[in-house]
Nucleic acid binder design. Sequence first.
RNA 1: GCGCCCGUAGCUCAGUAGGAUAGAGCAACGGACUUCUAAUCCGUAGGUCGCAGGUUCGAAUCCUGCCGGGCGCGCCA
Length: 588
Amino acid sequence: MVRRRVEEAVREALGRRWPEADLAEVRVEAARGEEHGDFAVNAAFVLAKQLRVPPRTIAGELAGELEGNPLFTRVETAGPGFLNLTLTPSAYHELLAQILAEDASYGRSCAESRSRLQIEFVSANPTGPLNVVSARAAAVGDTLARLFEATGARVEREFYVNDHGSQVDHLVDSVLWHRKGGKGTFPEEGYRGAYVETLARESERALDPLFPIGASGLDPENAGALLAAVGAIERGEIEEARKAAAGEGKPLPACVMPETFRVLLRAWLVERVLRGQREGLAAFSVRFDRWYRESELHASDAVDGTLDILLRAGDLYEKEGARWFRSSRYGDDEDRVVVRSTGQPTYFLADIAYHADKAARGYDHVIDILGPDHHGHVPRMQAAVQSLGKEKEWLEILIVQQVNLLRGGETVKMSKRAGEFVTLEDLLEEVGTDAARFFFVMLRPNSHLNFDLDLAKSRSLDNPVYYVQYAHARISSVFAHARAAGVDPERIDRAGFETLAHETEIDLLRLLDAYPDTVAGAAATREPHRIPAYLRDLASRFHAYYHRAKIVGEREEVTGARLALARAVRIVIRNGLDLLGVSAPESM
RNA sequence: GCGCCCGUAGCUCAGUAGGAUAGAGCAACGGACUUCUAAUCCGUAGGUCGCAGGUUCGAAUCCUGCCGGGCGCGCCA
């Protein structure tokens, strides 16, 4: 990397001239305009404070130190104390060779190779298809995970399944209502939407032949053995289901009590809905290392164990028949109930137990990505991890803001209450994975996203996804043209690189040089949108270059050098798109 | 009422973890196809960075207060 070489040269010069100075804040950054050279150095301002010397004086002396260095063709001070450095083109020619050699690993680093981190995202309730906010969280979370991997971290992706709480019961009530012919009043907190009725019909086909309902039959206390069968039923393995349900050679019960059936239906629904979510996410190129179920926590003694931890920390007390977590001690507005007066643990307690489990697994850092409606949970969760004995910073919570879908310039009306919403599957069908992922990551996660469906699916110059992909396809096409002309586009002739001297060529190389910093910065600031922004910029500069310069058909060494430059651009576009989970097509 | 997020060109958004003259795309206007993909490029025009203070060599960026928009404030999840 050119910038790093410059930074080393600057630090070396500073250390020689002012050995006592603290250089931690010294930065070498890409210069803004042409007239400022390639890189700007802020050292004079940093040292001015420490040494109590005017910045211009320091800048002048530093310039003197650097002047003999063959890396620079121009060293000059400017403004209140900036130092502007212009690089010799051959530094960029070396960069070009480096990019071609590193290929798919260009932009990756091992800066975070010692850290093991976990990122939890989506974590939607298993009560229906994923909506567009979940889709955005999926795209952002997965891209962040890829960014962390690119900086060398070991990353685990996890989806927390709230399969235990009341929300699933509301879905069960809603499905039962449809199974009974949709008569009577609809469950008060029930789930609406066409998919609920579809689930009801499916459940009839899957469960009813195996588990006829009778007034007297297998009671819920003995339903446990049957639960094992539910997963098999959901996978369509009926014979497996029969074996599992019967258990150890026993015959299937002739019928099950309605309460038992409800338990089975509930388990089946969770499996069925989860399968839908998993398939949707897989189609979206998002895969999780683990699907962690809340019910696992309840099945073990993890939840009670967590109460003990809170108790020992002195953060648990009783009031009005309930047990409370003293989250206010750690900055939350008020304390929170963890065990209801009914004796039932709250969702929050299970969530604490879940994070206690994460802590026990030894991650250096964990990240939760939450939707906009959950930002109120941040203080209480950070209180919880502190009570568990972790630093507040150990848990980082990112909020992904809402998504406003636009079609024909109008907001697409959605109503969660009425079950009318655009699902991840709908979105993929309409605009495809590439456009959806690119658009979701294009904006800062923190800002509301206006997702223009018409633009996302348009195969036009306005569509940023196509714009970037087109640059990749165009280079591939140039390569095909080169081969047809008898030129090997993969051949590297470093001597020919010297012909890359035009400003547009150095500009492109400068931008390619910034790619590793862009990746590292996007990861460090949790701002994945910097990658699409960078790619649009790179594609734009390549398109301009393409129009200006002929690649194939020039003198052999010129064509060779330009092909090498184009190949480096293609490598970076491909690597960048890969971070976004977007394909890099050879032709369009 | 309290808390979180957002206010930058007509629209959608950047602004590289305080830096130099605030940038793109779209929309508008004017140009470029005997040429490796015109799904592209070149140019013109467009701003009181919501408002007011403060911090310092320097603020769109940090702090405080206000204004405007979104969301949240259950012994639901």
